[in-house]
Amino acid sequence: MVTNRIDHTWGMVVDLDRCTGCQACVVACQAENNLAINEKSAFLEKRALEWIRIERYWEGEYPNVKARFIPIMCQHCSNAPCEPVCPVFATYRNDGGLNVQVYNRCIGARYCINNCPYQVRFFNFWHPTWPASFENYLNPDVTVRTRGITEKCTFCVQRLRRGELEVERRAGGRLNDQNMAERNYMPACVQACPTNALTFGDHLDPDTKIRPYFDDVHAHDIHHEQERTTRSYLLLEELATAPNVIYLKKVEPYPIGENEHNG
């Protein structure tokens, strides 16, 4: 039988105080993962595919106004609402703690899309097409999804698998923050992010940079009004989906409405 041993539990920390909304992660993801080109019509139909997206929220209006950015990708929930509703077990949690999508099982029921509170699952309403010459740049490690298939962020599982193959099976080492960064095994968005707002790692590993945040979240349950020691929070935490993506609150020295004190 295939063992179901947990080798890693991959997770990400997103520091909202650093994210500038620059779109480097968005384009890096599209380039890495063979996403169909979002033509103008895709935006007009509200069917643009972005495995990682930047949401922009306004607060206030001129002159006391803020625009805030947040990158949102699959949260790789440990208690994923998308998984139990799939009629064909196309989506499940794998032994790296990833929420994965088996494309050749997917029958396009779209229950998972409906049940995902983060809206990070995408349906291919059309067969993706590229000009023939663009097919030259398609990543051979990533399946091109056909019409009728649901797709989503994989934390660049192809890079993690390469890492496991090269570092763990061939060299007998273990993937860690350092060799993942040096040898291009980090997810494409994390590698690209110019402000280092995204940090990725294995939170089973006590030495990884993301570990303190996961420890904090695991130790302090906001549902029991326990206060955290870091800026950590989970997206839509009240749903108890147990995401493997932690957000760090944006630091706000001059909140709107405090002009009297800060000018």
């Binding site: 206060e227 929070y233 944006k250 630091v251």
Partner: peptide, 15 residues
């Protein structure tokens, strides 16, 4: 107010 629910903020030094 999705902005406030989704993007949480904190004063400097807070958590």
């Amino acid at each position: 107010n999705p902005g406030e629910e989704i993007i949480k903020t904190v004063a400097p030094g807070g958590h």
